Computed example of a mutant assay.
Amino acid sequence: MRSDDVADPAARRHHGNRHGRSEHARRAVLEAADDLLVEKGFAGVTIEAIASSAGVAKQTIYRWWSTKTDILLDAFLQDAAEDLAVPDHGEVGADLRDYLSSLTHFLTRSDAGAVLRALLGQAQHDPAFAAVLRARFLDEQHDRDRLVIERAVHRGQLPADLDVPAEVDQLVGPIYYRLLVTGDRIDEHFTDRLVAAFLQRAGRS
Rank of each mutant, 00 (worst) to 15 (best):
V6Q: 08
P9F: 09
A10I: 11
A11S: 11
A11I: 15
R13H: 14
H14I: 08
H14F: 07
H15A: 07
N17V: 09
N17I: 11
H19I: 10
G20Q: 15
R21N: 07
E23F: 02
H24F: 03
H24P: 05
H24C: 01
H24E: 07
R26A: 04
E31S: 10
L36K: 02
L36I: 05
L37R: 00
V38P: 00
E39R: 09
K40L: 14
G44R: 03
G44H: 03
G44W: 03
G44E: 03
V45M: 01
I47N: 04
E48N: 13
E48W: 02
I50Y: 02
S53F: 00
G55W: 08
V56R: 05
A57N: 13
K58Y: 06
T60P: 03
I61Y: 00
Y62M: 05
R63L: 02
W64Y: 15
W64E: 06
W64K: 08
W65M: 09
S66V: 05
L72A: 14
L77R: 04
Q78F: 03
Q78D: 11
D79P: 00
A80H: 00
A81I: 04
D83A: 15
D83G: 11
A85R: 07
V86K: 06
P87A: 08
D88N: 12
H89G: 14
H89E: 12
E91N: 14
R97P: 04
L100Q: 05
S102M: 10
L103Y: 11
T104P: 08
T104W: 00
T104M: 07
H105Q: 15
T108E: 12
R109D: 11
S110I: 02
S110A: 08
D111E: 12
D111I: 13
A112R: 12
G113S: 13
V115I: 15
L116E: 05
A118F: 13
A118I: 07
A118D: 09
Q122T: 07
Q122L: 14
Q122R: 12
Q122H: 14
H125F: 10
H125K: 11
D126M: 11
A128Y: 04
A128V: 13
A128S: 15
A130R: 13
A131M: 08
L133P: 01
R134E: 13
A135Y: 06
R136K: 11
F137M: 09
L138A: 14
L138S: 13
D139R: 14
E140R: 15
E140N: 12
E140P: 02
H142N: 03
R144N: 10
D145L: 06
L147W: 15
E150R: 11
R151D: 12
R151V: 10
A152C: 04
A152S: 06
V153S: 03
V153E: 03
Q157S: 09
P159M: 12
P159Y: 10
P159S: 09
D163G: 13
D163E: 09
V164F: 11
V164N: 12
E167S: 03
E167M: 04
D169M: 06
D169W: 04
L171S: 14
G173P: 02
G173K: 00
P174T: 10
Y176G: 00
Y176K: 01
R178T: 06
L179N: 02
T182S: 14
G183L: 01
G183A: 15
I186R: 08
D187R: 08
H189V: 13
T191H: 01
A196I: 11
F198Q: 06
Q200E: 07
R201E: 01
A202P: 03
G203W: 06
R204I: 02
R204K: 14
